[in-house]
Amino acid sequence: MIEIKNLTYIYDTQQSPALENINLSIQPGEYVAIIGPNGGGKTTLIRQLNALLTPTQGEVWIDGLSTGNVKNHKEIRRLVGMIFQNPDNQIVGMTVEEDVAFGPGNLGLSPAEIQRRVDSALAAVGLSELGKRAPHALSGGQKQRLALAGLLAMDPKIIVLDEPTAALDTSGQTEVFRQIEKLHQQGLTIIFITQDMEEAARADRVLVLHQGRLVADDHPAQVLTRVEWLLSLGLAPPRLVQLMCRLRESGFDIGTDVFDVERACQQISTLVTGQRQMLTDRKPREV
């Protein structure tokens, strides 16, 4: 459970705050996407969640532990695992196994317990076969899964991801999201930053950060369908939503909260069959 109260964060007193008066609470098991233009404060916000940054004003509580207290940092970082954008710069070990063992080693666990956790974490992300490999020889998607295994070995409750797919190709992106969704189904809280509105639409809740303020916090169907508003913030609404909105503006009776091709196809074909039906109904009378 995450509780953020009146959080303000200032990097530099000369500049405007990176985060301004954020109030937010995230329940266990939620699946949250954070979107917003660059410089909006997304990365600054998630770095507050594992105490890489601590509030200038206000409070951040993780499972009843305040990030303001340095004594809590060790436990907070165990509870909140973080994945960064560039997979290469978060690998510490010389082999896959050893990299996963880094977190448990920091917790001071026994070698036998570390081995057990490494094995189960690698199995969970499907990398058991590659335990002895050198990490730099893995593909981008495999590297991000390795990073996830490194977190799972610490038995976290919350996983925070900073644009985890930005550096990956399409198959790597699917690979990573399949893994993330599996973890969400197992009850972990997932919070991720993304530039990709289709990815954001997968979440149960979307937060929009703009100029350090939380300007929207709702279900994707409510947030991602506000086409004009998203464009005014410099964000690109999902293409399917844009298409549906255009059709709606042209007078078709169609829902706009459509995020996958499957549903779009369904809606449009119902519409088309309806029209065709009307035409065929009309024809005989014209004759």
Partner: peptide, 19 residues
């Protein structure tokens, strides 16, 4: 960036354990 990633995984100087 590596330092951030290490800190995020609970790194602290001093005694630790190994695989």
């Amino acid at each position: 960036q590596l330092i951030d990633a290490m800190e995020a995984r609970g790194y602290h100087p001093g005694p630790r354990t190994y695989l």
